[in-house]
Amino acid sequence: MRGLLLGFGGLFLIACSCSSPSAQPTATAAPAPSEAAMVADGEPTAPVADGVAYFAGGCFWGVEHYMQELPGVISVESGYMGGHVESPSYEQVSSMTSGHLETVAVRFDPGRVSYEAVAKRFFEIHDPTQADGQGPDIGPEYRSAVFYGSPEQKQITEGLIERLRARGYDVVTEVRPAERFWKAEDYHQDYYARSGKTPYCHARVRRFGD
């Protein structure tokens, strides 16, 4: 969030720009939807098309926090996706030159919650009409995007966007195929759970009228 937060009385100066000993992100999931898999601690888990979703909606701390609250979600990891830099660091991503977006990998139980419900929650916890940022966090790494892992995920996502547009929302969320997911440094994981703080640029808004 860099210096953009000075206007908030300095209360959030460290948010998404905290300094910590450098650590290299871990590459996970990626190639073709039929083969893509999320990898945690070196072990493959659920295929992207059946239990993993990738979302970018501003600072990954807030997205991670609210996605973890959805029943049926097993785990959420903060990381980077969509850019050209291999094994990117937070500093590289925040420099706005890597092409990566701050992204979360959401692993969920399809028997308890559908992909549509997971994607719907994503659209409710960030502002999908804000371009090049989220709240006070401005920059290409904070863009809104859904990285789909299958044609079905793409179709469902586009359907949700059309529902929002029909309700008057000028949605700018990008819909892109999933690429390699790079897990962010450890100090970014479960930030709000560990710090006891509250997300400041994310909040749930029931945009679908139900």
Rank of each mutant, 00 (worst) to 15 (best):
M1N: 03
G3F: 00
L6W: 15
F8L: 12
G9A: 09
G10T: 00
F12I: 04
F12L: 04
L13R: 09
A15K: 01
A15N: 06
C16N: 08
S17W: 10
C18R: 09
C18V: 03
C18H: 12
S22R: 12
A27V: 13
A27G: 02
T28N: 02
A30I: 07
A30P: 05
S34D: 12
E35D: 10
A37H: 14
A37N: 11
A46N: 13
A46G: 02
P47L: 03
V48W: 14
A49G: 11
A53M: 11
A53Y: 06
Y54K: 01
A56K: 05
A56V: 07
A56T: 04
C59P: 03
E64Q: 15
E64C: 00
Y66R: 05
Y66F: 15
M67I: 00
M67R: 00
Q68W: 00
G72L: 14
V73S: 08
S78Q: 09
S78I: 01
G82D: 11
H84L: 12
P88M: 10
E91Y: 11
S95T: 03
M96H: 15
T97A: 13
S98F: 09
G99A: 05
G99Q: 07
H100I: 04
H100W: 11
L101A: 15
E102I: 06
V104I: 15
A105M: 13
S114I: 07
Y115F: 15
A117C: 08
A117Q: 15
V118N: 08
A119K: 02
R121L: 13
F123S: 04
E124L: 11
I125W: 01
D127P: 05
P128E: 04
G133C: 09
P136I: 13
I138N: 09
E141Q: 15
Y142N: 12
S144H: 05
S144E: 09
A145P: 04
F147T: 06
Y148C: 04
E158L: 13
I161G: 07
R163Y: 02
R167L: 14
D170G: 07
V171A: 04
V171G: 03
V171P: 04
V175D: 01
Y192W: 05
R194T: 01
S195R: 09
S195K: 11
K197C: 03
H202A: 04
A203V: 14
R204V: 10
R207M: 07
G209A: 06
G209Y: 10
